[in-house]
């Protein structure tokens, strides 16, 4: 008898095909490339031989190349700080919105969503002008007018301000985009909590802070886990804004570069390009992402939240 394809299997085919073609195949391909000495897209010459050379190279870069070390440090700092800003900021905004009048909260939400709705280039351009090192730069002109500084500051590139200022710029630019994601998820989660629980807590004497801490936040734990893991993974791999900031010279080339951008530049920038090396770095990035993702789920006790409820339902 021929094994029959169930309806579930049948309906999964289109999605599975897409995932196979656009995710699984490229993943396998890039892992493979990471073992080849591919460079300058010279497929005929370099594909075929495999070795661990790229990983060895990365290891020695990590030990001896100060620029690569900067990239790694930037990646760690940028990812953790922006993650904290995104999750905690999103939570703060959602809670503020929750206690806000509906008429006020709608324009407020739209305002915070603007960075996400604005095209990456336009949004980055705004920040380019904001942090511009000339007297015409928004920040410089404000501070000069207020008399805080006498001459324009090269915010992201002045060696005296590195690396903190470059990192701050990266966090600010990405933070404003990322924070709205947490805000939207948390806000809708908060609205799913029955209003009576809030009333009950109020009647029992809970202050707003106690209400948040004991009633509201514990109930959106699942959403916090979700947003944290999701943002962690997307921050590890984000580079669009950072690329433009680096290209336009808003931030220092290495103190303003994360590993994802490093991968991109190594593989695709003009001149000598090293696809094999980039693929190795990308593979490490994926491994780090997977490991961190699992750790996050573990730390936040994801399994505990997935326990089936007991007793009668409904």
């Amino acid at each position: 008898m021929r094994p029959r394809l169930g309806p579930a299997g049948f309906f999964l085919i289109p999605a599975l095909a897409l995932i196979l073609v656009f995710y699984v195949a490229p993943l396998i391909l890039s892992v493979y490339i990471s073992f080849t000495p591919l460079k300058n897209w010279n497929l005929d010459r370099y594909l075929g031989e495999t070795s661990l050379d790229n990983y060895r190279a990365l290891y020695s870069l990590m030990r001896f190349d100060p620029d690569f070390q900067k990239v790694l440090k930037t990646t760690v700092v940028f990812t953790t700080v922006t993650l904290a800003v995104n999750v905690l900021g999103g939570l703060g905004l959602a809670l503020a919105l929750y206690f806000m009048d509906e008429r006020l909260s709608l324009p407020y939400r739209v305002l915070w969503l603007l960075p996400r709705m604005t095209p990456v280039a336009v949004y980055s351009l705004l920040w380019y002008y904001f942090f511009l090192g000339s007297p015409e730069g928004t920040l410089n002109s404000i501070l000069m007018r207020l008399g805080v500084i006498d001459e324009p500051v090269q915010w992201g590139t002045d060696p005296r301000l590195l690396p903190e200022m470059a990192w701050a710029i990266l966090v600010i630019v990405n933070g404003f985009v990322g924070v709205s994601f947490g805000m939207i998820v948390f806000y809708s989660a908060l609205h799913n909590i029955p209003r009576e629980q809030v009333i009950a807590a109020r009647v029992d004497g809970a202050s707003t802070l106690q209400l948040m801490r004991y009633v509201l936040i514990p109930q959106i734990r699942w959403h916090i886990v979700y947003v944290t893991v999701w943002q962690l993974l997307s921050l590890l791999t984000t580079f669009a804004h950072i690329f433009l900031l680096v290209e336009w010279g808003v931030v220092d080339r290495y103190w303003g570069q994360n590993l994802a951008l490093y991968v991109f530049l190594k593989a695709f920038s003009g001149g000598e390009s090293y696809q094999g090396l980039a693929a190795a770095a990308a593979t490490i990035l994926v491994v780090i992402g997977v490991v961190l993702g699992f750790i996050a789920l573990r730390v936040m006790r994801f399994r505990e939240m997935m326990v089936e409820p007991k007793g009668e339902l409904g």
Partner: peptide, 20 residues
């Protein structure tokens, strides 16, 4: 007076127990 200074006990249709 705010609710907490009135010392009332309130019971709801949907019980409003804290699920966590």
């Amino acid at each position: 007076l705010p609710p907490k200074e009135r010392n009332v006990g309130l019971v709801f249709q949907n019980y409003a127990l804290y699920p966590h």
